[in-house]
Design a protein around this nucleic acid. Structure first.
Length: 648
RNA sequence: GCCGGCUUAGCUCAGUCGGUGGAGCACCUGAUUCGUAAUCAGGAGGCCCGGGGUUCGAAUCCCCGAGCCGGCUCCA
């Protein structure tokens, strides 16, 4: 019998003919004996699959071995099985649902098992036994009908069989010792390959992510080939926890929330407000540079406005609204309609465009209670919002300018950007295909003309137009939502915005929504975590502190502080030991301490010490002031006065 | 909003079996006057998240609610 040949495309773009019905592993052996032996899994048309997966004609295949990143995914997937196996030994009545790998590890969702941290400890011990026993992980097939019987008591697995495996005759299972699980793979060859693992937390999740369906117990864990890698991972988590903006915000008195005020409504004291105002004046400076003019709009509006914009029907439940006499009013959830109405106050000419408005606009959105978190998700926040009204032929220039500005801003904070183009979601979009295609092409053009790396996020656009989203990458490599540039063809239509064209006809302007920092509140949270509270001088609530050695030097300390009057300077004038003052200055994250005693008072100098414990004696106050002024005015991300003065 | 956990001094946290609540730091007072990461002593500070219940008696047990934390879902 003659096997029919099919063609497989390999990563180097070469092709390989293999018999029909070949698996990933077969192809690997076809390429080379050694590669065949090392095969862990395959990447088939971009999807990670088990090595037993049959390949199709014309598919693209990459062989995954132990040296590839995907090996970690398979390892974690096997660890998820080891967890489920250990779980069933202690909780035989538990029902398994799904247990995939994730970027950080794995989770397993289970039903009919309430677990607490102590249970996890017991399960971890059992898992250690399973790993030590080094059970081989075997794949086997079962008829779908048999599998349905096998899972007679497990409606979740049966649902997977009904949906995911609907057309299949046979389904695959994986087995290690007494444990069997319906699973597509891939997995590593034996449980002993799991070098190090840890169960991280127990929480909950909805079956199929649907809040109307069953609530399941979800256990998160992670696994690595070696103990060292696990330890690095845990260390990074600990560091992240140390930098939690809620903790630092509390310690440094940056913000507070009060039950009496309400959830998600932070109060800022002088320390937080110093940071807040610095961010605001930074935004003001940027807006002046790029010609965005400030406007102001009220917090309260008749809801008819949001009926007109279309937000009412989609978001009224997320707005704060109430009847006021005959009318219904709502706190604004966004600034764009107000800006649009200002645009619309008179007949605009094509010559006037682009018209660019901006506002530090405070908006209120009734986020779900479970979503509220420190300054990251709140009910009331202030956006560094802006809207450009322009002609179609101006979009490219405007977006380019906004993109460059966003990159510059992140650069000031020493943060990298990860740029993505979010395109149309067919299920959630309005407007013609033609408009979408044009606007996506325009954004794509801007990105291609820039020297930025960017990726596509298909179907992630807002309903009214495509957007460029930027993630900010902080000092620990974590990603946060950053600047956004969104095209909007809808609102100008809804509010009937026009301009008079060269041809004497009325035309529809395009609206570009943009935010650089997002909201001042959330950006503060990011900045706190990014710098870990150790702010650069321009942002630090207290930029320098004068520490007199003894009470005899308090007067001189105040003289020094007065000389630095343009900065945020305090004097540690309580009767404490100098060691204690230094300790406090460091704990308070003051960038610069100026220690003054007899020597300094006599010479009219200070002894400088920064947060990095770098010290320099005999510093001229005016020289330091000049250095600090430079760091503040130029918004330098590092406090480097000590080394700079040292080498001056 | 849903699931689970937590809530004790300004902060971090102990509090046994149901029998009138403690520590460290911070704060106040006094002493000390100090040269680069915590001087010593004393004092003050509590609606034990709120409401209801069980009990002779509740920080502790039960019910309801709020806030926070971890997830899920959501994020114009």
């Amino acid at each position: 019998m003659i096997a029919l040949a099919i063609t497989i495309r390999l990563p180097d773009d070469s092709t390989l003919e293999v018999p029909e019905g070949s698996t990933v592993e077969d192809v690997a052996y076809e390429i080379g004996e050694g590669l065949g032996r090392d095969t862990v899994a395959g990447e088939l048309d971009g999807e990670l699959v088990a090595k037993e997966e049959p390949v199709q004609d014309e598919s693209r295949l990459r062989i995954v071995t132990e040296s590839d990143d995907e090996y970690l995914d398979a390892l974690r997937h096997t660890c998820a099985h080891a967890f489920a196996q250990a779980l069933l030994r202690h909780f035989p009545e538990a029902k398994l649902t799904i247990g995939p790998w994730t970027d950080e590890g794995f989770y397993y969702d289970i039903a009919e098992a309430d677990l607490d941290r102590e249970d996890l400890d017991r399960i971890e011990e059992e898992m250690a036994d399973i790993v030590d026993a080094d059970h081989p992980v075997e794949r086997f097939s079962m008829k779908r009908t048999e599998a349905e019987e096998y899972y007679e008591d497990n409606p979740f697995k049966r649902e997977i069989l009904e949906n995911e495996a609907a057309g299949e005759e046979e389904v695959s299972f994986y087995q290690q010792a007494e444990f069997e699980d319906l699973c597509k793979g891939p997995h590593v060859a034996s449980t002993g390959e799991i070098g190090a693992f840890k169960l991280l937390q127990v929480s909950s999740a909805y079956w199929r992510g649907d809040e109307d369906r069953e609530t399941l117990t979800r256990v998160y864990g992670t696994a690595f080939p070696t103990e060292d890698e696990l330890e690095d991972f845990l260390e990074k988590r600990r560091k992240a926890k140390e930098r939690d903006h809620r903790k630092i915000g509390q310690e440094m008195g940056i913000f507070q929330t009060e039950e009496l005020v309400g959830p998600g409504l932070p109060l800022f004291g002088p320390e937080g407000t110093a940071i807040y105002r610095e961010l605001e004046s930074f935004a003001e400076e940027i807006n002046a540079e790029i010609g965005h003019e400030y406007v102001r709009s009220p917090h309260l509006y008749r809801t008819e406005l949001w009926q007109k914009t279309g937000h009412y029907e989609n978001y009224i439940d997320d707005m704060f609204h109430w009847e006021q006499g005959e009318r219904e009013f709502a706190l604004k959830p966004m600034n764009c309609p107000a800006h649009s109405l200002i645009y619309d106050r008179e007949t605009r000419s094509y010559r006037d465009l682009p018209i660019r408005y901006c506002e530090h606009g405070t908006v209120y959105r009734k986020e779900q209670h479970g979503e509220l978190s420190g300054l990251l998700r709140v009910w009331g926040f202030t956006q560094d919002d802006g809207h450009v009204f322009c002609r179609p032929d101006q979009i490219e220039d405007e977006v380019t300018q906004l993109l460059e500005t966003a990159i510059h801003i992140l650069d000031v904070f020493d943060m990298e950007a990860r740029v993505a183009l979010a395109t149309k979601n067919p299920d959630k979009s309005i407007g013609s295909d033609e408009i979408w295609e044009d606007s996506e092409a325009t954004l794509r053009q801007v990105l291609e003309d820039s020297d930025l790396d960017w990726e596509l996020e298909p179907e992630d656009a807002a309903f009214y137009g495509p957007k460029i989203d930027m993630k900010m990458v902080d000092a620990l490599g974590r990603e946060w939502d950053g600047p956004t540039i969104q095209l909007d063809y809808n609102l100008p239509e809804r509010l009937d915005l026009t301009y008079r064209g060269e041809d004497d006809e009325f035309h529809r302007p395009i609206m570009i929504h943009r935010a650089f920092l997002g909201s001042f509140e959330r950006f503060m949270a990011v900045v706190i975590e990014h710098f870990g509270g150790n702010f650069p001088p321009w942002l630090a609530p207290e930029q320098a502190r004068v520490l007199p050695i003894s009470d005899d030097h308090v007067d001189y300390a105040h003289e020094v502080a007065d000389e630095l009057g343009e900065f945020r300077v305090e004097v540690a004038d309580r009767s404490e030991t100098i060691g204690n003052k230094i300790r406090r200055g460091h704990d308070d994250n003051v960038p610069y301490m100026m220690i003054v005693g007899d020597d300094e008072a006599e010479a009219g100098t200070v002894s400088l010490r920064d947060h990095e414990e770098r010290t320099l004696d005999d510093v001229d106050i005016a020289d330091f002031a000049e250095m600090l002024a430079d760091e503040v005015e130029n918004r330098r991300a590092q406090a480097n006065a000590v080394p700079r003065l040292e080498h001056a």
